[in-house]
Amino acid sequence: MTRTEVIAQIAIDQSEKKRKKFSPYIVTVGLLPLILLAWWLATTVTKSVSPILLPTPESVVAAFPRVLSAMGFGDQVIRTLLEIAGGFVLGATVGFFLGVLLSSSNRLRTAYLPFLSALEAIPTVILAPLIIAWIGFGVEGKILQAAIACFYAVFITTLSGLGLAEPSAINLMRSLKASRWQVMTKVRIPTALPVIFGGLQLGATTAIIGAIVSEFIGSTGGLGYLMIRYRGGYDTAAYWVIIFLFLVIGLVVYLGIWYAERKIVFWRRTEITRPDLEKQ
């Protein structure tokens, strides 16, 4: 940096400091009571929103202990979590290994590329009625549905991530007599991990969706089954309690994978910075 640049930098920094009186996260926190207030105004006060869609906040709060202490509630939660976890692990494992397999051969990759683009397009929910007809309303069907839903994201991110390695790095490894296995574990997979984690994050979200949809359509238990039952009894407040539960599940899974990525892939941050405020 030349001296003029430094001076200009300081001037910019100071002007920005002056402009930024408070952190944007104050607005974030401040929005929450506003949203709750809007909810309260729309339901309790003005009654402009149908209670079938959105119940009053009071009734939802009152419904919490009722839903959480209902008979067998814990079993339903565990069942749904099991379906999501089982489907995610199954789908992600298959996706990862298929991705590794296809990335090992250029010819295979070009041969199967058209089918892969087709796989991307398929809305997997259409398979839900089929799967129920095949293996019934039990846990296995939900796991299969969740696995199918999350398979593609992990597979395709593995495949494209493994292709990201620098050719020069691979050449260096080869010239040092590294085996294919070593090139894979020391260069290709480390380069691909940030991308794969993106796929895991998307895959986890879609696995949750797969499990819920399958439970909605027909199930002998689980949170989706409970929701259908509550809606049938027009107990919308209880329904919203489970929506919040799913929000928590979704956030925990999402942020959990994000956290795992930051711990495991410490050598590369994939976060998107704000380039417009970035300093060179």
Partner: peptide, 20 residues
């Protein structure tokens, strides 16, 4: 300078494989 790197929700997306 305050490091104003914000973490946008990293929209995870399966991008097309890098095959010509």
């Amino acid at each position: 300078m305050t490091a104003t790197t914000t973490t946008m929700p990293p929209t995870p997306r399966a991008s097309a494989p890098l095959v010509a």
